[in-house]
Design a protein around this nucleic acid. Sequence first.
DNA 1: AGGTTAAGCGCG
DNA 2: AAAGCGCGCTTAACCT
Length: 383
Amino acid sequence: MLHQQGQELATAMAAAERAAYSAAGGPFNIGSPKQLQEILYERLQLPVLGKTPKGQPSTAEDVLEQLAEDYPLPRLVLEHRALSKLKSTYTDKLPGEIDARTGRIHTSYRQAVAATGRLSSSDPNLQNIPIRTSEGRRIRQAFVAPPGKRLLAADYSQIELRIMAHLSGDAGLLAAFAAGMDIHRATAAEVFATPLDEVTSDQRRSAKAINFGLIYGMSAFGLAKQLGIERGEAGRYVELYFERYPGVKRYMEETRRSARELGYVTTVYGRRLYLPEINARNAALRQYAERSAINAPMQGTAADIIKRAMLAADGWLERSGRDARLIMQVHDELVIEALERDVDDVRGAIIRIMESAAELAVPLRLGGSSPHPVGDPVVQRPG
DNA sequence: AGGTTAAGCGCG
DNA sequence: AAAGCGCGCTTAACCT
C-alpha cells in the first residue's frame, strides 16, 4: 500500500522536477536550498521577501507561497517539496519501522522533553503522521486494526481556547462555549460586528487566525503576515477583539506581569515553566519569553488534562475486562484499539472520560466535525 | 567516515 | 530588532 504510493510520489516528483527545470531555464538540484536560492534570487531576480535567521534570502514555504502568485517556479518547488517530504519521511521509512516480533510500529514517548508538559514521540514520531492534505491522508490508511478489532480516535475540540476562556474568565468567551457555538464563527461575528449567520468564510478564517494567534502570543505584525493584510488593518482586528473580549486582554496583561514578577508561569494543575529571560535587556529574548509565558499555561494545561484522561481511560479499560487499550496520544487526541463488538461501549466510555477529565468553567467537548485520523471510526458524540 | 548545524516541513 | 507556541525527522552543507 505504501509501496504503491511511493511509486506514485516518485512519478509526480519527477514531473514537478522537469517542470521546474523548464521554469528555471536549466536543471539544478531542486532539493538544494543553496542552488535554489541562486536560481530564484540571482538568475531569475525574484524579490527577496524574507531572510533566513543567518541572513540568507529565504526559500521557506511562506515566502515561496507569496512568490508563487507572480512566478511559476516557486509553485513547482513547493509541489516537489510536499511530495518529497511524504515519500522520504513516511512512505519510504515507515515499512522499515515495523517490529519483527509484533508486526506493528511502536513509538517511544518521552515525558520530560517538552517544556510545556506535552509528551514527545520519536523513533518513529507518530505524532506527525500527515492529515492536512489528501495525499498525506493516504499514509494514514496504512494504519489499521487487526482482524476483529477497530481503531477509535477521539480528539478534544478547541481545548486550548476553552482553557483560555477558563483562565481569563472572559464573559463573552465563556458564554460562547457554554452555548456550544462554533468559536471561530462567534469570534468573527463579534470582531466584524456581523450577525452570526452572515459571517463570511473569509471573516471566519481571519477570526481563526486571531484565535490561534492569541494562544501563541502573536503580534499585529505576525497576524498581518499570516493573513496577508496591512499591519494597520491587523492592528484594528486585534483592537476590536480586545474590546469584545476584555477579560482576555486583562488575562494576557496579568500573565506577563506575573511572569516578570515570579520568573515562571503555571498551568491549572500547577506545572511550572520557568522563564529566566522574561526580564532580559535583549528585546528579542525577552519577547520570546513573553510569548512562551502566554502560551505555556494553555498548552500545558491541555497536556495536564489529556494525561488525566489517559490515566482514567486506561483504568476504565483495564477494569472493564475488555480486550481494549490505549494505542497512542497526539497532544489533544487519544487512539484506542477495541474489539469490533465493544466499539459502541468503548466509544461511550471514552467520550465520558475525556469530557470529565477536568472541571473547567466551560465544558470540555470532543471534536466531531473534522474527518479523521488514524483509520476508522472517529469517536463522536451521538447527534 | 562520522558528527553537527541549518533549512525546511510534517503534526498539534 | 524582532515580529507565532511546542515538538522530531530528512536532506544539504559544513566540519573534524
